[in-house]
Amino acid sequence: MKIAVLVSTGRHPVSGATVLSRLEAQAIRLAAGLGEPLGLHAGPEQAVLREALGQGLVRGEHIVVPDGVDPVPALAARLAATKPDLILAGRRGQGGDETGLVPYALAETLDLPLIPDVVAMASDDEAGTLRLDQSLGRGALRRVLVRGPLVVTIHPDAPAPFAYAYGQARRGTIVPLDAAPGTVEGTGPTVEERPYRRRPKLVKGAPTGGSAAERLKAATGEAGTAASGRLLVDPDPDEAAREILAHLRQIGVLAPPTRPSIP
């Protein structure tokens, strides 16, 4: 099976160093379970491909695209030429704009179906079909049987990536490719950038549209769990059990007692 993994320029969240984004590293691991993963990167530098070679990529192709230029046409042209059975990408980039739009734009351009947020992949018995497990959050899955070729994006709950192996990175080959002529500057909406300002997260159960005092009360936990924090010292065990079950049900993690409605 011919598998292409889209490799983007990731940034380490703290140091800002050029790294392979974790999702793409996970994509490589998933791909390695099905065949030989080939990397495709469009950008000015090839350092990130070298990194990807150390994490399980067999070969990398580097389309030289200047910074700030939309990589989608270059990627689409190359993918249209190589026609892989499977194109893998992370669900979002890491350290860039993080819009997660590239795989969708590619799928649209190549007119391929796209399955998002996959955590596991396997070949199905029927040739050309794949069994994909999509994350629905909290360990719930949707198992999708799908016929390729297609684009798949990877969810963070996929298996952890392979460890980086310097020797493999050293040995892997990177093929430089020239960008197809006629790629134009990407025109996104005009955005203004400034340092990130952390905003308070909404507190669950906080009154909406209440006064500032009420919101503060909710935010500082006075009305949240800490305020309702209850302490029972040396209760009767049965009393304690009743309290715990009632509390768990109130939170909603425990189903209410069995209802007789369903026989």
Binding site: L232, V233, P237, D238, A240, A241, R242, E243, I244, L245
Partner: peptide
């Protein structure tokens, strides 16, 4: 803890199991 119970966990676990069984 939001709900803290100062009691022997062993007896509370047994009480919980009893209560869940009764409910079932």
């Amino acid at each position: 803890a939001g709900l803290a119970i100062v009691q022997d966990a062993q007896t509370v676990m047994e009480a919980l199991l009893r209560r869940l069984a009764v409910e079932a």
